[in-house]
Computed example of a mutant assay.
Amino acid sequence: QMDPLLPGLASGFEGLVPRRAGIPFYSTVTGEVSDGTGLDGAYWCRNLREPVRFDRALNRLLDEGHGVFVEISAHPVLSMPLTDGSADRGGIVVGSLA
């Protein structure tokens, strides 16, 4: 269902010029850490079209010693997956609107 949106999205992102991030960016597209320079229009089209690998990004965060997660959202829909995915490794999850 997303495929018809991709050409317009790619066109709208043509002028996007990514730059190096000040903090690590954990990608749910690749499951890897990005320095930000690869977050161009093609990346965001992949983000829309490819499976979300939240598990890979979360595991990478946990592997690197991160264990406290704050979901900043009007509707904290990721609190449960974060809790489920990090509980056995001592993760703590809080919502910003709790």
Rank of each mutant, 00 (worst) to 15 (best):
V29M: 01
V33C: 03
T37F: 04
W44G: 02
D88V: 09
A21N: 12
N59P: 04
R53Y: 08
D35Y: 10
L62S: 00
A10V: 07
H66T: 05
D55H: 09
P7L: 10
D3L: 11
G15E: 12
A21M: 11
H75F: 10
E50R: 10
A10H: 01
L62A: 04
D88N: 09
V17Y: 03
V17E: 15
G95M: 04
E64W: 08
V68I: 05
S27K: 03
G31Q: 01
G65F: 06
G95P: 02
R89G: 01
G22H: 10
G95E: 06
M80T: 13
A10K: 13
F25Y: 15
S79G: 06
G90L: 06
H66V: 12
R49H: 14
P51F: 06
G15I: 02
F25I: 15
P18S: 13
F69D: 01
V70P: 01
E50K: 11
E64G: 11
R53C: 07
S79Q: 09
P76N: 13
D35I: 12
A98E: 14
L39D: 03
F54P: 03
L9F: 15
L61Q: 05
E71Y: 06
M80I: 12
V17T: 15
W44D: 06
M80P: 04
V93G: 00
L6I: 15
N59V: 04
A42I: 09
I23T: 14
H75E: 11
R53S: 07
T30F: 01
A21G: 12
S11E: 15
V94G: 07
S96V: 10
L61S: 03
D35Q: 10
R19T: 14
R60L: 15
A87Q: 11
T83H: 08
V70T: 02
D35C: 09
L6P: 03
Q1S: 15
E71I: 05
G95Q: 07
V94D: 07
G15H: 06
S86I: 02
E64F: 08
N47Y: 13
L78G: 01
N59M: 10
F69T: 03
L97F: 06
R46I: 04
R46E: 14
T30L: 02
L5Y: 13
H66M: 11
G85P: 02
V17C: 12
S73W: 04
T28D: 06
L58Q: 02
A57R: 00
D88Q: 12
R46N: 14
P81C: 09
L48F: 09
V93Y: 00
F54N: 09
L82K: 00
G31E: 03
S34Q: 12
A10N: 03
T30S: 15
N59H: 12
P24T: 12
A10C: 05
V29Q: 00
R60M: 10
E14I: 09
A87V: 11
S27Y: 07
D88I: 05
A98I: 07
H66P: 00
E64L: 11
D3V: 13
V68C: 07
G38D: 14
L97T: 12
L82A: 02
R60V: 08
G67C: 04
M2P: 07
L16R: 04
T30W: 01
L58W: 01
C45K: 02
E32W: 07
S73C: 07
